[in-house]
Amino acid sequence: MQYIFFAYLSVAIIGLSIFIITRKNPVHSVLGMLFMFIHVGALYLFLNAEFLAAVQVIVYAGAILVLFLFAIMILNIKEELQTELFIGSWVMAIPVVMGLLIMLFLGLRAVKAGYTGLHNIDYIKTMTHTKAFGKELFANYLLPFEVISVILLVAIVGAIVLAKRRLR
């Protein structure tokens, strides 16, 4: 049963990734991306990470994709459908990507999950994932959490400054 589930999710994720980078119409790509994010969220559920699945759907599918759709509205779709899909030297990318794939494949073949920490499945099940996650986040990762809020603030200010019509 779990093999069927994993096979479905991986085939859907890979197929939708190929769908995203080969569509001419960017709106179709964004819709493919929406389905891909939901499938990745399902994969997180499969790995006992419910909170991250919720964050994935809310932040990625809810916030980032809406931003992308807003950006697509300023494109000229009719003109976009006429133009070339790939850059002129796209053939050069294939050996680069294939080399990376083979190198990482050979390198990652030896990876084993040797180290085992404190957060095993029973711990997460008795505590619920969100609570275990929050405890770990606010006990050991408080400083990175604060830093990430500063990064988000910088991003907000930077986006407003860049997209503003004229700076006085």
Partner: peptide, 10 residues
């Protein structure tokens, strides 16, 4: 995920 949101906005 947070950095991805910031990166997409910028």
């Amino acid at each position: 995920i947070a950095v991805a949101a910031a990166e997409a906005a910028i």
